[in-house]
Amino acid sequence: MSLDTATVRRIAKLARIRVEEPEIATLQTELNAILGYVEQLNAVDVTGVEPLSGGAQMAMRLREDVVTDGGIADKILANAPDREGRFFAVPKVVE
């Protein structure tokens, strides 16, 4: 599988990364090189193999339902690039 320029644009859009027109061709070449490299996986027979999604082989611990956090709005907002009072602020969204 190799990427055409339309797909490169679509991925960039999905990933919310602005890509300028002159960058498209370079990105296309680089991404196709990586995809070409991983192509060798096609040679592996994985019939009947259960996928492994994590590095840890155990069941999940469950936490007790107690309030132990929050009440730190100042710290939550301290790094915000823009805010209105105690809210985060972004350019207006039209639904």
Binding site: V8, A12, L14, L35, V38, V44, V46, L52
Partner: peptide
């Protein structure tokens, strides 16, 4: 971008799921 692509509709099984299975191997 590579990560977005291998998870995207139509490509997940061929890339991500396959990779997970080989990870198991």
């Amino acid at each position: 971008m590579i990560g977005t692509y291998v998870l995207s509709a139509g490509y997940y099984d061929a890339y991500y799921l396959k990779a997970q299975k080989i990870r198991a191997l």
